[in-house]
């Protein structure tokens, strides 16, 4: 069943190739096999096609093992395509090292576990690691680090000399984010940006990401298994399953479609679930509510109507 679906989606994906003028990131018919040529070989991507346009927020949804983390590594040239293409702002990933370095500057990736990403003892040094590689002058470097730390809500003067191992989980996550932002990327790819954070910090990180997009025109790619989080943020989503894109489009459309998620064991966001169930019981609420606010307003209106 999975294989035939994957094949069908691959056919659909091929049809999309070449119709994405103006996209910042083109991923076209991308395949990946881990440990190719060994008895442990395992296909992770089977013909993925996806595009990211400047200034948009794209969500990539799927379970562990759906190919999400493999896909992320192609977006900034950590992996080079053996089959398929990845092009970022005109730079083809895989051809030359110069192209790869350009791509890594354009696309910043914040990985899931900040422990892997923060490797200097002091917060300020860690955030400065990336821009230092670019060979910036001291003043410019300091300005960038200050900007990046303030952008994620770590006051520069209070945090620059803090030891990274004394940070709380939330502060460590923010340090990792600042380290990527300090490279001044055009696209920020975030792998499970708020997992393991407490509710207050989660909200704070989310607000700051949206502010960066608003103020600085940053393009965001959010990779997550948390539907509720993606629903409230993304302009467009791709649903990944067994290495293939099985649904894509605006979250409102994708989440309200019963066949887009359920066959892959994925649940729509909570508010959508409630509204879909209510409609099935004959209560006239919109079926595409994405947030508590939208669902609550729709339900209250329907209840007032019923009186």
């Amino acid at each position: 069943m999975t294989a035939s679906r994957a094949a069908a989606s691959a056919a659909g994906a091929r049809a999309e190739i070449g119709r994405a003028d103006g996209a910042l990131i083109h991923v076209e018919d991308l395949w990946h096999t881990y440990m190719a040529g060994t008895p442990f070989a395992e296909a992770a991507l089977r013909g993925v096609t996806m595009h990211v346009y400047p200034g948009e927020v794209v969500g990539v949804i799927g379970h562990t093992g759906s190919g999400k983390s493999t896909l992320i590594q192609y977006l900034n040239g950590l992996l080079r395509p053996a089959r398929g293409r990845v092009v970022v702002a005109g730079h083809e990933v895989g051809r030359s090292n110069a192209g790869i370095e350009a791509v890594r500057r354009l696309v910043g990736v914040a990985f899931q576990d900040p422990e892997d990403q923060v490797f200097e003892p002091l917060v300020g040094d860690d955030v400065a690691y990336g821009p230092r590689q670019l060979g910036l002058a001291a003043e410019e470097l300091r300005a960038r680090v200050r900007w990046a730390m303030e952008a994620v809500g770590l006051p520069f003067d209070a945090f620059k000399d803090r030891y990274t191992y004394t940070l709380s989980g939330g502060e460590l996550r923010k340090t990792a984010l600042a380290g990527v932002l300090a490279m001044r990327p055009q696209v920020l790819v975030l792998d499970e940006p708020t997992s393991g954070l407490d509710p207050a910090t989660r909200l704070d990180v989310r607000e700051r990401l949206l502010a960066l997009r608003r103020r600085d025109g940053l393009t965001l790619v959010l990779v997550s298994h948390d539907m509720d989080e993606i629903a409230g943020l993304a302009d467009r989503v791709y649903v990944l399953h067994a290495g293939a894109v099985v649904a894509s489009g605006p979250p409102r459309e994708v989440f309200a479609r019963p066949d887009a998620l359920a066959p892959y064991g994925l649940l729509p966001p909570f508010p959508t679930q409630v509204c879909v169930r209510l409609r099935a019981r004959g209560i006239p609420v919109r079926g595409d509510a994405l947030t508590i606010e939208e669902a609550g307003a729709a339900i209250a209106a329907a209840l007032r109507e019923a009186r």
Partner: peptide
């Protein structure tokens, strides 16, 4: 695996390519 993740994280933040 952790070493791989660390090298990727550093490469993502502009560590020079090995050629």
């Amino acid at each position: 695996l952790e070493a791989e993740r660390l090298m990727k994280a550093q490469a993502s933040r502009g560590a020079r390519l090995g050629g």
